[in-house]
Write a protein that binds this DNA or RNA. Structure first.
Lengths: 114, 114
DNA sequence: CCCTCATATGTCGGATTCCGTTATATCATG
DNA sequence: CATGATATAACGGAATCCGACATATGAGGG
């Protein structure tokens, strides 16, 4: 699984945030946009173009899948597959190591930057 | 500064890794490629196309600048500007919050993924 | 019933970015 | 001065980004 997941890394920001939004619960597209805006406190917003391009690709890659429709017939709910969960987990682990490195370098040498 | 830096976020993976490589010390392009490969233990490699496209853009944005050439006349050394250091710092802070959220959701509910 | 507005998905097309291939120049060695 | 490794850069097709626009459905009021 980790081998499979590794092929998808690194994730671009849009993909990372979509997977993150879906990690908590299954959501439909419009709700994904809202959840990403909420998580970033409004500083990062995905437009529909970027969102649906990405969902289309992720469906094809088997990273997310569509859940059976219930209630509101407009909504298409998406959920992470096992692969998708593995990809997100692997990316988070990778980013932790990136952050670790960054902190070493950002404080070493130049305190006040400039 | 942070306001300025915020305009550049989120960083795509190539940009993040270039800035990270330069956070430690000034490097020339070829060395940036090697440093990124080293930091990721070979799992993420930037080709020259992606690297120089990005450096060109970052120079234009004032995120990195060229240092005076010394020694080997082929090499062009790059360094982070104050803005560049601020951008990297802001992105790292943002990613920490992303990781925090992700960990909540990834362990909640589904322990073993699958 | 309609009419209207918010919700929700999807399309479209230009701009940007990605990224491997190829070209060119310089260094180090013998 | 020949050779091979290092280093930068140009090139061009593919992929992605992303706002604007189009369409369809739901909720609620009159």
């Amino acid at each position: 699984m980790r081998d499979q997941a590794a092929k998808f890394l690194p994730l671009n920001p849009a993909t990372l945030h979509i997977l993150l939004a879906l990690a908590g619960e299954d959501l439909h597209g419009y709700a994904i946009m809202q959840e990403i805006a909420r998580q970033s406190e409004g500083s990062y917003r995905l437009g529909p173009g970027t969102l649906y391009d990405n969902l289309q690709r992720l469906l094809g890659q088997g990273v997310v899948q569509e859940r059976g429709r219930t209630g509101d017939s407009r909504r298409r709910y998406y959920r992470l597959t096992a692969l998708g969960r593995g990809v997100l987990t692997a990316e988070i682990a990778r980013l932790e190591s990136v952050i670790h490195d960054a902190k070493l370098h950002l404080q070493a040498g130049r305190p006040g930057n400039a």
